[in-house]
Design a protein around this nucleic acid. Structure first.
Lengths: 353, 353
DNA sequence: GTGAAAGCGCTAACAG
DNA sequence: CTGTTAGCGCTTTCAC
């Protein structure tokens, strides 16, 4: 039953040379786009012979010789999460433009796999790795960096002069939201968040506060509503429920604010849903701003005004930094923060007088 | 300015051999996990030397020698679409278990890029490609298959005895939905869909009809509601709006059915939203079933009962078929259809008597 | 302008 | 059990 059909051996550079009555060296020069001078006649013969033989250069041979794979490794928790999917697409776009291929690894948050992936990628001779994952063994990574591996961290603290880093500017995002709300005439704002154990959640709050301060205002501590419940079930389901719970607490507040910033869109949408269920109109009775700009934000009614972290751009920049490092460019742009941007939809309005 | 720090040359197999006072062959045997007998003492010395030198085998060298990269190529439109993201994650899980790496390519629906990707992957000596993209040059693909490339198509018509294929069983999905509705006592059902220019939309309808027939029922043609509007704007936004329009038409029907199957979740959710806005209760006044099981389906109120195509499983099977083909396994399982599954939530209920 | 030859790092005969 | 050797497909001196 083992009917392994014999395939015609793939043509190699010698085959092409023979057919074009030339030599491997010259074929290589022509087909790899070298600038080395080759006569027009010879060039034509070679191109023709290659076409006839259906020749495709073996990249492995080239890689071994040149010691340059033109590939980068990318490690993320999982592209099932749209945020990472966007980043990866951004990375790939940039990589494609620069002529690099991408080796993608989803760790699914398994620390063991993560380390294994780093090792495998290094073995495959990628010269650079972009990663957004916390559990990697940094000691090992350092060791590999000493052997020439370039590393760019995405949305992560630990970095150093030898690594690149692309950060998300949550503080700026919080400021953006505050600026939008305050300049729309809101004099009292609330912040909705799940427990403050993630950097993003606290930094958004920081920015929110900061912008208030910059405008001579302050955020009433009683208006910072932190959900107590632990994260059970799936993340987004949890966040949605969290938004509903916080909305109920919000409605019970005396001297209730006229606007809310939520730490992320799912919380905002949960809150909006609860408001609607209780006859509180968004944006007439209360304005809501989210964070993340997930697809859903454009679908709910009213559309959710939210802060977009520009994940695509994050990927692009990460890749750019990485490739620059690999190609020995100046490391000036090694540490970037991507500026988030406010997307206005219908969930914010000036408060009633 | 060109401060290219000199990195210590990576150790190679000769370095390890020298340090362990052995030979490259033996080092290879030990470090590549060959079953070739090597004395314990020697083995230990080699492992130790490798560790001291921080040795990582160069996979490129091995690939060139063995003519086996242990890598597969994956081509999809874009992982920004969660459906494809799920598939890719499924592929990768399976690939990881089987010891294969993955080269991911997002075509972003650019036909030119698609062909280029196929070529590049082939040049990189992947022995197999899984692809879910329509625009590939099939003539070229056939040519590469003749050179031994294995191909698995995902959710696509054109296939043949030489290629693998993993299909989605939309017909079965439609049947599942009908069975659920009918056995819950619904005697009159409707189908909501965007224009019938996609295979999925017509096959789901087919299945829906078929199951009716199998139970001696029939689907009233006037209850097949097809949106006329062309797809403008973003896909999911369009579908959402489409659901709302169809819901309005549905409510105007005389002898209105008690249940609805939507061609996909976004349409179903749009319809639910419209129903709610018009005081029609789901599931009390009308039951709704969706298709796709997107994350959102579990978040809306009531939860949307829907057909899950099991994209993750699709990816797994695609990869399994591919690797089997690459490893010369029997091709029995070459053409698979993945059985969808009904996920029950709160949007379906027996109709009022 | 062209070709011969060496060699990238590894594994697999083969010989001992 | 261990080592020597050849060579995977390519690029790149170097010599002509």
């Amino acid at each position: 039953m083992s009917e392994s059909v014999e395939h015609p051996r793939k043509a190699n550079i010698h085959d092409v040379a023979r057919r074009a009555e030339s030599s491997p060296a010259t074929v290589s020069r022509v087909l790899s786009g070298s600038s080395y001078p080759v006569s027009e006649a010879m060039r034509r013969r070679i191109v023709e012979a290659a076409a006839e033989l259906n020749y495709t250069a073996n990249a492995i041979g080239r890689m071994l010789k040149t010691n340059d794979t033109h590939e980068i490794g990318v490690i993320v928790p999982t592209i099932a999460n749209p945020f990472y999917a966007q980043i990866v697409v951004g990375i790939e776009k940039e990589a494609k433009e620069r002529g690099y291929g991408m080796l993608l690894c989803n760790t699914l948050r398994d620390a063991t796999d993560e380390d294994r992936y780093v090792e495998t990628l290094f073995g495959k001779q990628v010269m650079g790795i972009a990663l957004s994952s916390v559990a990697v063994d940094h000691a090992r990574l350092r060791a590999l960096q000493r052997k020439g591996l370039k590393v760019v961290f995405i949305d992560q603290e630990p970095s150093d002069a030898n690594s690149g880093k692309v950060g998300l500017d949550f503080i700026r995002g919080g400021m953006l939201a505050a600026a939008h709300l305050l300049s729309n005439g809101h004099r009292s704002c609330a912040y909705f968040t799940a427990p403050l154990d993630k950097r993003s959640r606290v930094e958004v709050l920081e920015g929110f506060r900061l912008e208030h301060a910059l405008r001579g205002r302050s955020l009433d501590p009683r208006h910072v509503l932190v959900d107590e419940r632990e994260e059970e079930s799936e993340e987004s389901v949890y966040e949605f429920e969290c938004g509903r719970r916080l909305a109920r607490r919000f409605l019970a507040l005396t001297g209730r604010p006229t606007a809310v910033l939520a730490a992320n869109d799912m919380i905002a949408i949960g809150a909006m849903q609860e408001f609607a269920a209780r006859g509180v109109s968004v944006p007439d009775d209360v304005s809501v701003v989210g964070y993340d700009n997930i697809m859903l934000a454009s679908l709910v009614r009213p559309g959710l005004t939210t802060v977009d972290p520009r994940s695509n751009e994050i990927g692009r920049l990460a890749c750019r930094a990485l490739v620059d490092m690999m190609e020995g460019e100046t490391p000036e742009i090694r540490h970037v923060k991507v500026e988030p941007v406010l997307v206005e939809r219908g969930s914010v309005k000036r408060p009633r007088a």
